[in-house]
Nucleic acid binder design. Structure first.
Length: 611
RNA sequence: UGCCUGAUGGUGUAAUGGCAGCACAGGUGACUUUGACUCACCUAGUCAUGGUUCGAAUCCAUGUCGGGCAGCCA
């Protein structure tokens, strides 16, 4: 006993260039506490790319005893919807549950940034509620946590509209912003192109008083959509396009799903995001590579306002693009509205809700996206890596069951009609102390049609004319006769069961090359099984000129399978391995007691049919 | 002819001037009442050319190739 030291060493925390920066900032005393944020726009469901961002931001928070705020970046009411707020909240909670839920930063219900004074200067601040740290015992103060959560909600950028407006007035007063009357088309023309400098707007040099008056009237609703905008006054000749007097506010006479009908001017991302980060006390604002060009603007807004507290800083990493998947909310929306799939949570979708419904455990998704690493390299991640971690997680989690997807009938001629032989079947051989259950062997059983070949290929270990196989957990059978109907279609296989080869029997040690799965015809249930395959036929559908042309027509096959009767009691939380077939879970939407629907999460690795 | 950013086996990712390592994929074998799992072994890499250095994937120079940027989207 004393010889065995650390039997299960804790897995090392991941290391990457962003974590290096965080560690250096901490070492230099730039922050007392690390605060990150996950800031989705509620205009679609979260997908696997977001899962990477969630695991990065929450991962950094949990490794540093910090917090990660869930914030809705809801500055464009025209594209957003409360349905997405709900789905995103659900998905985030599911992904971080039991891993980083203690780092989830929320705010008191209805709270807005509060006025405060820092070093004699006015300031506004909205810190997160501090959730209790996880107990080292398994007796977590769950009631306390629940009570905290009941009075809490995610952050919303739209809760900052009043403060953002005040900051805009400050920018105008500092001569750093102006109201522009150019329409969208002219604004674009004045902006120039990457190779060609832009030109100043004719409205660029309005007086502070006129800008103030116009901006206040924009808010008051005096002007129609698009008639005017508020712009930062930076440099129309800047080589960085985002510094050519970018828009800060636009006029949109539409109600907001969270802020109601209070506003008809809405801030744009570049203006709202950095200030939202500041108001929440974010230390590290982590986003994807396409925002690198925006970073100078992020810093410009913050620095122009001369704010009293430490400023957040933006860091960028490359997004996760798994092979054979699409990660573009716009294209995913297209699949949904075009009825290519049944919804955002269709088990073929790369959405978090789709992957969940497919049966993939949150732990597997986390392991995959964390394992992919964090770099600035545009990578296409091999989907085999994800398939590997899903199998790895499920191998430990899933209980083994017998299920025959495409049945072919066997008659064991030496068993009597109505005779039932109970066999012990192992629930999970991976368990330290595996448990067993009973399965019934009867005269008529089903086996997988793939497990029989009338004309077997070389090295075929399964059932063939005159050959023997073991029915797993039962006994060895020998094929005596193939029965066909008038059309030549095989109707049944007549075999002899050698009961002496049962576990505990005198010939239990007898070896045969093949062991196959089976179910009793009388002691089994019929159930719908949905066999999924990848949604696209090419590794990089997102790079295709028309991604709809590379959709896999065989991404879903619905079949009626025969399953061992214990599966009648399956619940949504169960994960199953149908032995020799794959991993399965009940469908959360369409399955009902008595009318079960199983989704195939993933097949077992198959080294045989590959050859 | 602009600005930003990147390049390590087939794929992804480490090595922060000092033995190019890990995972997946692929291959061979062992084990097996899952052709699964597990185990062993094997295959395979620093974009190019110069330079600095005792020593370069790493630093410098030049080049090549890739990605991003001209929404009143985020």
């Amino acid at each position: 006993m004393t010889v065995e030291t650390d039997a299960t060493p804790a897995p090392a925390n991941p290391s990457d260039f962003i974590r290096d920066i965080v560690a250096a900032d901490l070492a230099a005393g730039r922050h007392q506490k690390i605060v990150t944020r996950f800031p989705p726009e509620p205009n679609g469901y979260l997908h696997i790319g977001h899962a990477k961002s969630i695991c990065l931001n929450f991962g950094i928070a949990r490794e540093n005893n910090g917090t990660c705020n869930l914030r809705f970046d809801d500055t464009n009411p025209a594209k957003e919807d409360i349905e997405y707020v709900d789905s995103i909240t659900t998905d985030v909670n599911w992904l971080i549950a039991g891993w980083a839920d203690h780092c989830l930063g929320l705010k008191p219900k209805g709270a807005h940034p509060a006025a405060q004074t820092v070093n004699g200067r006015p300031d506004h601040y909205l810190p997160s509620i501090q959730l209790p740290a996880p107990s080292s015992q398994l007796t977590a103060p769950s009631s306390q946590l629940a009570a905290t959560a009941a009075n809490a909600e995610p952050f919303f950028a739209s809760d900052y509209f009043e403060q953002l407006y005040a900051y805009a007035l400050t920018l105008i007063e500092k001569g750093k912003a102006y109201v522009c009357d150019l329409n969208a088309e002219d604004t674009e023309a004045y902006r120039g192109s990457p190779e060609k400098p832009g030109q100043d707007s004719p409205f660029r040099n309005r007086s502070v008083a006129e800008n103030l008056d116009l901006f206040q009237r924009m808010r008051a609703g005096e002007f129609p959509n698009g008639a005017r905008s508020l712009r930062a006054k930076i440099d129309m000749t800047a080589p960085n396009m985002w510094l050519r007097d970018p828009l800060l506010y636009r006029i949109r006479h539409v109600a907001h799903h969270h802020a109601g009908d209070k506003w008809c001017i809405y801030p744009l991302y570049d203006y709202a995001h950095c200030l939202s980060d500041y108001l929440e006390g974010i230390t590290h604002s982590i986003c994807t590579l396409e925002f690198v060009d925006h970073r100078p603007l992020y810093d410009w807004v913050l620095e122009s306002l001369e704010l009293p507290r430490a400023l957040p800083h933006q860091y960028e990493f490359s997004k996760l693009i798994p092979g054979y998947m699409i990660v573009s909310k716009r294209k995913l929306l297209h699949l949904v509205t075009g009825n290519v799939v049944t919804g955002w949570d269709d088990p073929r979708m790369p959405t978090i809700s789709g992957l969940r419904r497919r049966g993939i455990p949150a732990s597997a998704l986390r392991k995959f996206v964390i394992g992919a690493g964090v770099t600035k390299f545009d990578a296409l991640t091999d989907i085999a890596v994800m398939e590997h971690v899903v199998r790895e997680e499920l191998n430990g989690l899933a209980v083994r069951r017998l299920g025959v997807l495409r049945p072919i009938k066997i008659v064991l001629t030496n068993l009597a009609e109505g005779e039932v032989i109970e066999c012990d079947a192992t629930n999970n051989p991976q368990d330290e102390t595996p448990t067993t259950r009973k399965v019934a062997l009867t005269r008529e059983v089903f086996i997988e049609s793939d497990d029989f070949a009338e004309v077997p290929p070389p090295k075929y270990f399964r059932l063939k004319p005159g050959g023997e196989v073991r029915l797993k957990y039962a006994c060895i059978i020998k094929l005596d006769e193939i029965v066909k109907d008038a059309a030549g279609v095989i109707t049944e296989l007549r075999c002899t069961a050698d009961l002496t080869t049962r576990a505990g029997g005198p010939n239990s040690d007898k070896k045969v090359k093949g062991t196959i799965h089976w179910v009793s015809a009388s002691h089994s249930i019929a159930a719908e099984v949905r066999v999924y395959d990848r949604l696209f036929t090419v590794p990089e559908p997102g790079a295709e000129e028309d991604f709809l042309k590379v959709i896999n027509p065989q991404s879903l096959e619905v079949i009626t399978a025969r399953l061992e009767s214990s599966l009648a009691e399956a619940t949504l939380d169960d994960r199953f391995q149908f032995e020799r077939v794959g991993y399965f879970a009940l469908d959360s939407k369409d399955s009902a007691p008595g009318k079960l629907v199983f989704n195939r999460t993933i097949s077992l690795k198959d080294a045989w049919t590959k050859k």
